[in-house]
Computed example of a mutant assay.
Amino acid sequence: MNARKRDFQDVLDPFQIEIDWFILDFPSLLIKVSPVLEEPVKSQVRNTIKRLKLNDDDDCVKHRQDWLIQYCKGKITFEFLKETAPFIAYELERQNLVESIAFIMSVT
């Protein structure tokens, strides 16, 4: 991600990002801008998603999918998901999907 960020000023500093600025859409696993944000933060989040290719790079989406499928299949615990993929785990909790995500993802 640092290579993609380079010196561009339109990428948010990870230390300045507040909780719920980015949301994870299920089942697409695309990262989206929180609809409750106001400008200019909304534009900054959108620019960060675009600049870092968080949805355009198939590897990024596949990586999220791999972690989620492992959880859905019971190969990893939710606690392990929290440690290794905290954004995915947080979004599952925030959206109240911890128990139902396997059904949504069509994984049993």
Rank of each mutant, 00 (worst) to 15 (best):
Lys50Thr: 14
Glu38Ile: 10
Val11Asn: 03
Arg51Gln: 04
Glu18Phe: 13
Val98Ser: 05
Leu29Trp: 11
Asn55Lys: 09
Val36Phe: 12
Ile69Trp: 10
Pro40Tyr: 05
Phe80Thr: 07
Leu97Lys: 15
Leu54Ser: 01
Pro86Arg: 00
Val45Asp: 02
Phe87Asp: 10
Asn96Thr: 13
Ile17His: 09
Trp67Ser: 05
Gln70Asp: 15
Glu18His: 13
Arg4Asn: 08
Ser106His: 14
His63Ala: 10
Ile49Val: 11
Pro35Tyr: 05
Lys32Phe: 03
Leu37Glu: 00
Leu81Ala: 04
Phe80Ile: 03
Pro14Tyr: 09
Asp66Met: 00
Phe26Thr: 00
Leu30Thr: 02
Lys75Tyr: 08
Val45His: 00
Lys42Ala: 08
Ala89Trp: 09
Gln9Cys: 06
Leu68Tyr: 04
Ser34Gln: 04
Pro86Ala: 05
Glu38Asn: 08
Asp25Lys: 07
Ile69Val: 15
Val33Arg: 05
Phe8Ser: 08
Asp57Lys: 12
Lys62Ala: 14
Leu52Ile: 00
Gln9Ser: 15
Ile23Leu: 15
Leu29Ala: 06
Ala102Trp: 02
Pro86Asn: 02
Arg46Ala: 13
Arg46Gln: 15
Asp66Phe: 04
Val36Gly: 08
Asn96Arg: 13
Val61His: 09
Asp25Phe: 01
Lys50Met: 10
Val98Trp: 04
Lys82Gly: 01
